[in-house]
Nucleic acid binder design. Sequence first.
DNA 1: ATGCGTTTCAAACGTTTGTTTGGGAGGCGC
DNA 2: GCGCCTCCCAAACAAACGTTTGAAACGCAT
Lengths: 216, 216
Amino acid sequence: MAGRGAERGTVDRILDTAEVLFAQKGFAETSLRAITSKAGVNLAAVNYHFGSKEALIQAVFERFLDPFCARLDGLLTELETNSGSVTLERLLATLSQSALAVQKGEPHRVAIFFRLSGLAYSQAQGHLRRFFREHYGEVFRRFLEQLALAVPEVPPMEMFWRVHFALGATIFTLSGMDPLRAICRSDFAVEVLPQQVEERLLAFLAGGIRAQLPAS
Amino acid sequence: MAGRGAERGTVDRILDTAEVLFAQKGFAETSLRAITSKAGVNLAAVNYHFGSKEALIQAVFERFLDPFCARLDGLLTELETNSGSVTLERLLATLSQSALAVQKGEPHRVAIFFRLSGLAYSQAQGHLRRFFREHYGEVFRRFLEQLALAVPEVPPMEMFWRVHFALGATIFTLSGMDPLRAICRSDFAVEVLPQQVEERLLAFLAGGIRAQLPAS
DNA sequence: ATGCGTTTCAAACGTTTGTTTGGGAGGCGC
DNA sequence: GCGCCTCCCAAACAAACGTTTGAAACGCAT
């Protein structure tokens, strides 16, 4: 099967390496040879265990998204039972909690994952977009439902757009988290922790979602 | 030289085609053969006129960014002379005006360009990022200066992050403008014009930038 | 020990990639 | 006419790609 106890199995070594390399250089720019040689496994191992490069890419996302969505799903049902009192800030915090809880111990992998998400959104218009919609569309829909309850003054279609604005700010920022922190270090001589970035981001998102409606 | 009057020259045909194909599929996923065959020019024309594929990519950006930054530069000096009364909304509107004015007659190319920007930010960590910083860093810095004057209640470092949040929301949304409008059409049975998206986006950004500061 | 299913491996496969080559049009000065 | 420069073209180039192959190595029942 896998996992001989001490050292990790071939499948996990491939996933770990692919995750990092994809995030660094993109999907098309990362060759299977680069992955397998850095992971210390044979080139043919990818096609043997995953079937194809496309399947490997999906497996990388699945390994993060499955537990994330399960966690988010649980937290959402919790919120739904204590209905009425869900605030916007609480909802946004639920999201980031789900992401952080899944990656407990390796918070830097959250940045890697968002970087991958940004890539996925830009590139590979076809198979990845379908994959996301089919596997995780339901949880997303439930989240939107709660959002509408929390901020009733924003009409549905306006909220649709604002959610995507917020999604963009999140993915874009967390994609480039490390370079941005480096700029912050050199320009302001201040070390900013990822958690502080998260706080700032959530404040920005809340402000944007609750912004005054445009005259139309 | 170029331009025999009636039909466009080889260089422009390559740029026009590359722009569209890059936006559709990404840089690495678009081969020179795909570009040249669709443009109706010889394969070797790219290396002859531009030198390499990397140089072609930069040329595509240059063709849009040079006039855009020139326009923005002019509008900024206008604002600087009538100092004191620059509002945040006015500054944001200046940005989108610059983008639209440059592409007068072909507003859909603005979406293409933002899609390219999103790709550039995700992929190609090296040469494109340097290219942007070296060529257009100065105008960006001046814009930040005006922004600090318009919203003095937000401290510099906080503003630094919020600008990037806003940048992310913009690039991400305009990258996927057409698919998002399609979803809007099917889910809400409403046709949304790009200009309306811009209005909504600007409202969101203004709200986010002026958001209450997080407790820190 | 024997047999079987799983996993690993080096090597090769056929494509596709970006780039280079050498020659041939076409225009222009002289 | 000739020489020169710019541009275009079909063809070939070497390299890198994802994938496939067939055999060797392993673990583990019987």
